[in-house]
């Protein structure tokens, strides 16, 4: 019996973490100032999921990875110029809002629907990976609901092993991926999120606390211990 997997990675795009993020009120609800103009990256957590998936596929002959992403397709295209050079995958693009100010259930429904339309999908071989959405301002509930909608009720919600290095850039992989990425972007299904029943009482940036200490001669273990103690305080 073949052990090949069909691995679906759900990944959102988020503004570059170095950007100044400023919540503003827009006619359609809360938004980030100039979000469409800011450079975007793949949600780092989803990125980890993608690299784990690619690693599993590489070590399991016959496996394949799909990347399913909901976002404005022009922004998705920019992000693909970096991500597509990392690992082999096929993109399923949904042209819609990437904003975190969306209803997780609606996003999950759109993603699940897109997954179910993948030709030749075999649920006996299906693995669904995703990120925890912390960077995309999501509720952290999307992946569970995607799983439920796909009939996956036994879910493992955890973190990766954390020891997988970020894959090296590989332009040849990029060129291969682009053969399917560009057509996928061109035929990206317009996806509207109604946002029914969704209201935001208030939107604020997380409070930052910075305590800077310059240390040059401590081991990584000591530093880790100190950070844990600081968090417990």
């Amino acid at each position: 019996m073949s052990t090949a997997y069909q691995i679906i990675v759900c990944a959102g795009i988020v503004p570059d973490p170095l950007q100044t993020l400023e919540p503003v009120a827009s006619p359609t609800g809360p938004a980030l100032k100039n979000e469409m103009m800011l450079p975007a990256v793949l949600d780092p957590w989803a990125g980890h999921a993608l690299y784990e998936a690619a690693n599993l596929a590489k070590n399991t002959p016959g496996s394949k990875v799909w990347l399913v992403s909901l976002g404005p397709k022009a922004k998705l295209q920019q992000v693909m110029m970096t991500v597509a050079q990392r690992v082999p995958f096929e993109l399923i693009a949904l042209d819609g809002p990437a904003s975190g100010f969306t209803e997780a259930a609606e996003v999950a429904a759109a993603l699940a629907e897109a997954i179910q339309t993948i030709p030749g999908l075999d649920k006996s071989k299906l693995l669904v990976f995703g990120g925890w959405e912390s960077a995309s301002r999501g509720a952290g509930a999307t992946m569970q609901m995607v799983g439920e909608r796909l009939g996956i009720v036994d879910q493992f919600q955890g973190v990766d092993q954390g020891n997988l290095p970020e894959p090296k850039n590989n332009p040849q992989v990029g060129m291969t991926n682009m053969r399917t990425v560009m057509p996928a972007l061109q035929k990206a299904k317009p996806t509207k999120l109604a946002g029914e029943g969704l209201t935001f009482a208030s939107v604020t940036l997380p409070k930052q606390m910075r305590e800077t200490k310059i240390v040059k001669d401590k081991s990584a273990d000591d530093i880790a211990k100190e950070i844990v103690e600081w968090i417990k305080k």
Binding site: Q78, Q85, P171, G174, M175
Partner: peptide, 26 residues
Amino acid sequence: TLPGDDVRQIMWRFADRYELQMLMQG
């Protein structure tokens, strides 16, 4: 905002050349 890649790709005429966009990111 400061001009991003979308702006540069148009001004410097490689918006339709993804192999160059990837190379630039690399």
